[in-house]
């Protein structure tokens, strides 16, 4: 399904490449903001990329002072100007890391909006989008118009573009659609699924169930992608696939919950996933669809509860062109 690599993966690869080649020497201090600026990307993919590299031992976290290339932290106070470094970047220096077609911007903005609106209401800065994506007003207006059509944003009384809040009603409506289409889509996709792949997915769900520690966000993403994206990938009806994808908003809430809440328990979700995969493993599409319907209903209740928790939060990390109003 995913033809593009995720943004943070691209950033991770670029950073790893430049560290490997020595263009980013050992000991170089990397602040999220500075790297984002150097690569002309937003902060959140940089943050995730650096976390990944830190897990891999390529960079080391230095408390509030960002990351340092290599495994040891050198305590100097210099802040290197990353623009002075001759980095190896895809494309040429004047274009962004990933050339932004405006469709990609729509997708990106839509995603960043979704990451913000469970927390409250945001005002969208037109010029902020221009600056952030290095695009013209015309392109930005096109992007906003599309988002308006999708129902992601609206105008307030003072004619500002506003996103949010994500209401329980919106979750209900999308769940309603999803409950109708996604099980049917899974039933259609089931005969063409690779059983080896299904077994691997089931293995992941089972091992997550037996693991002691809380699921990481990446594990959670992986498990959700397994069931709700990969299992539907054999679908030939791309319009149906699109409808399913557009209704999968609860992902966002569950992921944010995992990001911000100290202790989340995903046991129920894992048990439900495993049950669906059990049916798929014996090519029982009807049974899988029923189990999926049960999972979606149970998940909807959890998502509604979680949305309420997110609503009390102060300052989530959000895209620079959004300003929180409430």
């Amino acid at each position: 399904m995913n033809v593009h690599k995720a943004y943070y993966e691209i950033v991770r690869d670029v950073l790893a490449l430049n560290i490997g080649e020595g263009a980013l020497p050992q000991g170089t201090r990397l602040y999220v903001a500075a790297v984002a600026d150097r690569l002309s990307v937003s902060r959140s993919p940089v943050k995730r990329a650096l976390e990944l590299l830190s897990d891999e031992g390529v960079v080391t976290r230095d408390g509030a002072r960002g990351y340092v290339v290599g495994r040891t932290v050198v305590h100097d106070t210099t802040r290197p100007n990353l623009h002075l470094l001759d980095l190896h970047l895809p494309g040429n220096e004047t274009t962004a890391l990933v050339p932004p077609s405006w469709e990609m911007i729509v997708q990106k903005v839509d995603q960043e909006m979704m990451n913000a609106i469970p927390f409250g209401i945001y005002q969208i800065s037109e010029s902020g989008i221009c600056d952030h994506f290095k695009v013209s007003r015309t392109v930005t207006r096109e992007v906003l118009a599309r988002l308006h059509d999708r129902g992601t944003i609206s105008k307030d009384r003072a004619s500002h573009w506003i996103a949010g809040p994500l209401s329980a009603r919106m979750l209900d409506d999308l769940h309603d659609i999803r409950q109708i289409v996604e099980p049917a889509a899974l039933d259609r996709a089931a005969p063409a699924l690779d059983l080896g792949m299904v077994a691997a997915m089931r293995g992941r769900a089972a091992s997550a169930l037996s693991a002691e520690q809380t699921l990481t966000e990446d594990m959670l993403d992986r498990l959700e992608t397994d069931l709700h994206v990969t299992c539907l990938s054999p679908l030939r009806n791309l319009r149906l696939a699109q409808v399913v994808r557009n209704a999968q908003l609860s992902f966002v809430v569950n992921r944010l919950f995992a990001t911000y809440i100290a202790r989340h328990d995903e046991t129920a979700m894992l048990l439900e996933h495993r049950l669906v995969l059990d049916h798929l493993a014996i090519r029982d599409g009807t049974g899988a669809a029923m189990a999926l319907r049960h999972h979606l209903d149970a998940d909807h209740i959890r998502t509604r509860d979680r949305l309420k928790v997110l609503a009390v939060f102060g300052d989530p990390s959000i895209a620079p062109y959004l300003t929180r109003l409430v």
Binding site: I121, A168, R169
Partner: peptide
């Protein structure tokens, strides 16, 4: 109680 539409309540209360 926090209503289900808590975020909407907060928006409109503002």
């Amino acid at each position: 109680t926090f209503m289900d539409e808590h975020t909407h309540v907060v928006r409109r209360w503002r």
